[in-house]
């Protein structure tokens, strides 16, 4: 007797977000199923890997890797790390953008005050480019959201592994007139061996809520895998081990529902891109 597999059908879908313009525009999200369950729904857009570089680093290696997006972290604007002014950073970003031609994901340094000072200027300088800016948090979202809204960018909304706070922040940002389809959620990333299953379960819960019709949780997920993995002692012990660690973490996050994975190591990124090609073959 043939076995009939139980199939879930959902009514909700994840929002599709476009980053960049024209031919280089990258779409993320749009799923109507949990990751890679093509029998149950569709994944119209492949998950995307973006390499992360610091604003003071050469982007060459990252560009060579073949990603469709590039993430630039403005580490040098931090008061304890150079305290670079906005105009210098804008100039560096201009060069990087020219060189790679890819839509950018621009992430601040983490110092709320400095980010609120620099990010609006950067946003304005790239007005209309439809970039993705981060990071908005529960305690600091207004400045970034207002400027992204004015300049036509999308935004990363971060919450501390908490589905309710994730949703609250999405509501707060949308209340400012922000299009929910321009928000990408960062549910907090962790690394293999550091409580990943908790992040996994939070992401899964968010996804299921979205598929059941919760519009305030229907945003794609971004995960900063590189940043987390290269903090671990395992990665610091040996580069080869770190590369494998980053691959394993990234793959797990894809299986949890990650739409956009930010990675640090080009070799690891290439492996994960290959993995995506493989699993997307139906």
């Amino acid at each position: 007797m043939p076995v009939e597999f139980v199939k879930e059908k959902y009514n909700g879908a994840i929002n599709t977000i476009e980053i960049g313009n024209g031919a280089k525009c990258v779409k993320i999200g749009g799923e109507t199923t949990l990751p890679f369950l093509f029998e149950e729904g569709a994944m119209p857009n492949q998950p995307v890997i973006a390499l992360e570089v610091l604003d003071t680093e050469s982007p060459d290696q990252a560009i060579a890797c073949g990603g469709r997006l590039l993430c630039v972290r403005l580490a040098s604007i931090h008061p304890d790390n150079g305290n670079r002014p906005a105009d210098e950073v804008i100039a560096s970003l201009g060069l990087i953008f020219k060189k790679c031609g890819l839509p950018l994901i621009i992430v601040g340094c983490g110092d709320a005050e400095k980010d609120n000072e620099v990010l609006p200027k950067v946003s304005q300088a790239f007005k209309g480019e439809n970039f993705l800016f981060g990071i908005a948090t529960q305690n600091n979202y207004k400045t970034l959201a207002a400027t992204c809204l004015a300049d036509g960018h999308s935004i990363v909304a971060e919450s501390p592994i908490d589905i309710n706070i994730a949703k609250q922040l999405n509501i707060l940002i949308t209340d400012m007139g922000f299009d929910p389809a321009r928000i990408v959620m960062h549910p907090t990333t962790t690394s293999l061996g550091y409580g990943m299953e908790y992040v996994y379960s939070i992401m899964e819960r968010g996804r299921l809520a979205a598929f059941l019709g919760d519009k305030m949780l229907s945003m794609p997920f971004v995960l900063f895998v590189g940043q987390e993995v290269w903090k671990t002692k395992e990665a610091k012990d040996s580069i080869a081990q770190g590369v494998n660690w980053e691959i394993a973490t990234a793959v797990s996050m894809l299986q949890a529902g990650g739409d956009l994975i930010i990675m640090r190591d080009p070799a690891a990124a290439k492996s994960v891109m290959k993995y995506i090609e493989m699993v997307m073959k139906k």
């Binding site: 908490d162 589905i163 309710n164 706070i165 949703k167 609250q168 509501i171 305030m216």
Partner: peptide, 15 residues
């Protein structure tokens, strides 16, 4: 706890 955090919003996270 989950219900509680969801209620830490005006009026509620689940509008």
């Amino acid at each position: 706890m989950d219900e509680y955090v969801a209620a830490l919003f005006f009026p509620h996270t689940d509008l």
